[in-house]
Amino acid sequence: MQLVVTNKSTFPGSGHYGGHWTGDNCSTFTDLANSISAVLDFNLFGIPLVGADVGGFFNTCSEELLIRWMQLGAFYPFMRNHNSHPTEAGVSEPQDPGSYSKDTQAILADIVAVRYSLLPYLYTLMYDSHTKGAPVVRPLFMLYPKDKKTYVIDEQFMWGSTLLLSPCLHEGETSVSAYFPYDIWYDFFTGERLTRVGTIIQLPTPLHSTNIHVRGGSILVTQTPARNTKNSRNNPFGLLAALDSNHIARGKLYWDDGEVLDPVQTKQYNLIRFSVEEGCLTTTIDMLGYTKYSMKLKLVQIFGLYVPPERVLVNNRPASFTFTEDHRVLQLDKLDVSLMEPLSISWS
């Protein structure tokens, strides 16, 4: 399943062998915004591992532009900060994070940490693309084909069917006009449920923040981030379950060692399904062919619980938990259980 080659020139079918970067762009907010359409197009072409040069290839990238581009680029399937050597046409100043202020570096580190925490979900989307041809990055109209308002949206996009990204793409702006189709949506960071849907909402987006929302009915797997993927592989996992109107949610995790060239064919991978129904989260292990790491689960968050639970059981044993009244989030953050064994978490 590994995709190890990225190209600037590709053709139909190239996505089976490698990825694509969108070519030489410029350090402008226009090119920042246009990159979304390019990433969406190539996913529809069957080339899911795609991204633009974060910060722009030509010219000089301002601190504001780099922050906004990193906040978007963290959700390109293929992410890299890349620019040109000095040329007669225009000098490109260094745009690596270390070339900017400490405040900017902190903002950039935060968004990269979010990307790293979501790598298990991204990897699972890549598995679905590999086995089913499903796009990793999707336009809203793919999920809501009957909603004509989604047909013209090119400044928002989905990761799979779960995460809705609404980046800030315009210079000097600190808010985003975002459209939310009729559905249940939660703020990824707080678990707060949106009260207005089917309309455009103005989202405050100061320079240090970006907008990520979770679709109700979804379960995604996260992992404590580290400085690189080799180290993060040793870290514990988390589960985020966002309930729909019937208090149901579904999700899955694909996981392998990241090194075997075709783990799907050789069955050297794990495939775990998650389900929430009737106040209980359970796992089903479809495939267990990779056991090098323990795959410990430490954190579970349940978004959208209207009734505060009085007790929580993990594999039929009482467990400590917290519940936030304002955003209706149940959280267990001291777990020490294995995802490679059947799991049951119930609340009442």
Rank of each mutant, 00 (worst) to 15 (best):
G18K: 04
T199P: 08
N235L: 13
E155Y: 14
K296Q: 07
F274P: 03
V214W: 08
P206I: 11
S294D: 10
Y123P: 00
E277S: 14
V152S: 07
V221M: 03
Q2A: 08
S117K: 05
Q105R: 15
D183H: 14
K296D: 10
D187L: 08
T284D: 11
L122I: 14
V337I: 15
L261D: 13
I302G: 00
P135W: 04
E173V: 10
D96A: 07
G23D: 12
S218Y: 13
R196L: 13
N234C: 11
R215N: 11
L253M: 13
E325T: 05
L3S: 09
N25W: 06
L271D: 04
G191T: 06
G217Q: 14
L65K: 05
F274S: 02
P236M: 08
H130M: 10
D128Y: 14
V264W: 11
Q301E: 14
T229P: 02
T87N: 10
S35N: 13
Y293G: 02
T210H: 14
R215K: 15
K296T: 10
L253T: 01
G160K: 00
L271M: 12
T210A: 10
G73Y: 02
P204T: 12
I345C: 09
G217A: 08
E93V: 08
L253S: 03
R193Y: 06
F323S: 00
H247R: 13
G73S: 06
S92F: 03
C61Q: 09
M79A: 07
K148S: 07
T22S: 09
V300A: 02
L3K: 07
T205L: 08
H327D: 06
L32T: 02
N234E: 12
T87Q: 10
F11M: 04
P12R: 06
S232I: 03
N83Q: 10
V176A: 03
Q301L: 05
G304V: 01
D187Q: 08
S99D: 15
T30S: 13
N246G: 10
I212P: 01
Y121H: 02
P86E: 09
P12K: 05
A33T: 11
V312P: 01
H208M: 12
Q268D: 06
Y17T: 04
T87C: 07
Q156A: 11
Y144Q: 01
I184R: 06
D183Q: 12
M70A: 13
E325G: 01
S99R: 06
V300R: 00
I111T: 14
V112H: 02
H247M: 11
L165Y: 13
I153A: 02
F42T: 00
A38H: 11
P225F: 00
A89G: 15
P181A: 11
H170N: 11
A52R: 01
R68G: 08
L240A: 05
Y186M: 03
Q95A: 04
P120A: 02
Y290W: 09
T205I: 08
A226P: 02
T6I: 12
G56M: 15
T199N: 14
E155G: 09
F188L: 04
V5M: 07
T124W: 05
S177R: 15
L239M: 09
I345S: 09
S9H: 14
K252E: 15
S218V: 12
A226M: 04
E325I: 03
I272D: 05
Y179E: 00
Q331N: 09
Y186K: 03
